[in-house]
């Protein structure tokens, strides 16, 4: 993997002539987690898709650049809310999907090693339907890591999990994605406060930073400064502060 770049996004996005968000000026620091929050429909996923170079409805007027001045094509991995596992492939074959898609020879040793890291060593020959929700997301995480890209874009990957599985997945992801430039789109202030080196609140008018606690992620979710920050952020999002 090459060094993770920082990413700079400036501009605004319109759909059918109506502004979705912006103008924004957002930096995703290199090798850190940036969590983006905002109300439903404000364009969080659109922002993520723009960075990923994926098709979006509407028109983005602006610029997305990386600190090393290189294109982001081929340097991004993507994790969505659903695990996106292909049901006809085994867990192991799902993890090496990227290599198979590109007609490369997959590094099976590394794939098995990653499976062991995410605790699925005994399940590698199973089909996704035989796995629990948490196990499926761990497989998706291993697939993301297998791509070994310096930038990871995560679109609410933990939102469909139960509370304890979500907490486990947050810890595992923070550990496994350390050193990468990560953008996490989330609805959950607690998740953003727990994981984010930076927190960005996206609104139709623009994007502004929200100060996370001074401690480094991944934060203790029961620490007073974490819970206070969560409460403040939630109240702010609800328009109460």
């Amino acid at each position: 993997m090459t060094d993770a770049p920082s990413i700079h996004v400036t501009g605004s996005h319109e759909i059918d002539g109506k502004r979705l968000f912006g103008p924004i000026d957002v930096i995703l620091p290199a090798g850190q987690w940036t969590c983006v929050l905002g109300r439903s429909g404000v364009g969080k996923s659109t922002l993520l898709r723009l960075i990923a170079g994926l098709d979006c409805a509407g028109l983005f007027a602006g610029e997305i650049t990386s600190s090393d001045a290189r294109t982001l094509d081929g340097r991004i991995s993507f994790m969505a809310q659903s695990d996106l596992l292909l049901p006809w492939l085994s867990v192991l074959d799902n993890i090496v999907l990227g290599a198979r898609l590109r007609d490369d020879v997959p590094d099976m040793v590394r794939a098995k090693d990653l499976l062991a890291h995410v605790g699925l060593d005994d399940h590698r020959d199973k089909k996704p339907t035989a796995l629990s929700g948490g196990m499926r997301q761990r497989t998706a995480l291993a697939r993301t890591l297998m791509e070994d890209r310096p930038v990871a874009l995560l679109d609410e990957p933990f939102s469909a999990l139960d509370a304890s599985t979500r907490a486990d997945m947050q810890e595992l992801s923070a550990q496994m994605l350390a050193g990468k430039t990560v953008l996490l789109v989330t609805h959950d202030p607690a998740e953003a406060v727990r994981l984010g080196h930076r927190i960005i609140v996206l609104t139709a008018q623009g994007a502004y930073p929200w100060q996370p606690p001074q401690t480094a992620p991944i934060r203790d979710q029961y620490a007073p400064e974490t819970t206070a920050c969560q409460a403040d952020l939630l109240a702010h999002l609800r328009g109460q502060r």
Binding site: L54, G74, F78, A80, S82, L84, G98, R102, L153
Partner: peptide, 10 residues
């Protein structure tokens, strides 16, 4: 989402 993921996989 699956097609998007495949696209990010070049």
């Amino acid at each position: 989402d699956i097609l998007d993921m495949a696209r990010t996989m070049d």
